[in-house]
C-alpha cells in the first residue's frame, strides 16, 4: 500500500510536524497522533515530532497502560527510528516545569528551548496537532 502512495507523489516532500501537547491514556489523542506518524513514514515526507506542555508525559519511562487494559504504546516511540523518523524534539521548559529530565524519557530526543521550538514550528508546511 505504501508503494502505491509513494508513486502518486514522486519527489513531493513536505515538512510535516506532529505537535503533541496532551498526556497519554486519559484521552486517545496521543495514541492517534502516533498512528498518523507511523502511516506518514510510508510517504517519505520530512517528518518531525514536537513534545511540549503535557505532551512530554507521552515519553515518560515506566508506563504500563496494560493495567488499565489499554494499549501500552510508549515503547513504540523507540521503534520510530526504524521508520526513519528521527526528529523528536522535546521542549526543555516543558520538561523542567514537570520535574523531568531526559533521563526520564523512553527514547533519545533532541531537547530544545522554547525559542528553538518556536522557530521549528514556523518552518513547517503541515502541522498536525491532536
Amino acid at each position: 500500500m505504501s508503494d502505491e502512495f509513494e508513486d502518486d507523489f514522486p519527489g513531493e516532500v513536505k515538512r510535516f510536524m506532529f505537535v503533541n501537547r496532551k498526556a497519554p491514556h486519559g484521552t486517545i489523542y496521543a495514541l492517534e497522533s502516533l498512528e498518523v506518524v507511523l502511516i506518514s513514514a510510508a510517504f517519505d515526507q520530512d517528518v518531525s515530532l514536537a513534545f511540549l506542555d503535557d505532551g512530554v508525559f507521552q515519553l515518560r519511562k515506566g508506563q504500563n497502560a496494560n493495567v488499565l487494559e489499554m494499549k501500552n504504546f510508549a515503547p513504540t516511540y523507540r521503534a520510530l527510528e526504524g521508520y526513519d523518523i528521527e526528529k523528536l524534539y522535546v521542549e526543555r521548559e516543558s520538561l523542567e516545569e514537570r520535574g523531568m529530565t531526559t533521563d526520564d524519557l523512553v527514547v533519545p530526543v533532541e531537547v530544545v528551548d522554547r525559542a528553538r521550538m518556536t522557530a521549528l514550528m514556523a518552518e513547517q508546511e503541515v502541522v498536525m496537532s491532536f
Partner: peptide
C-alpha cells in the same frame, strides 16, 4: 486551559 498561554509563547511572528 493553558492553550492560549502556550500558543502565545510560541507565536513568534505568526
Amino acid at each position: 486551559t493553558n492553550d492560549l498561554a502556550s500558543c502565545l509563547a510560541h507565536l513568534g511572528d505568526g
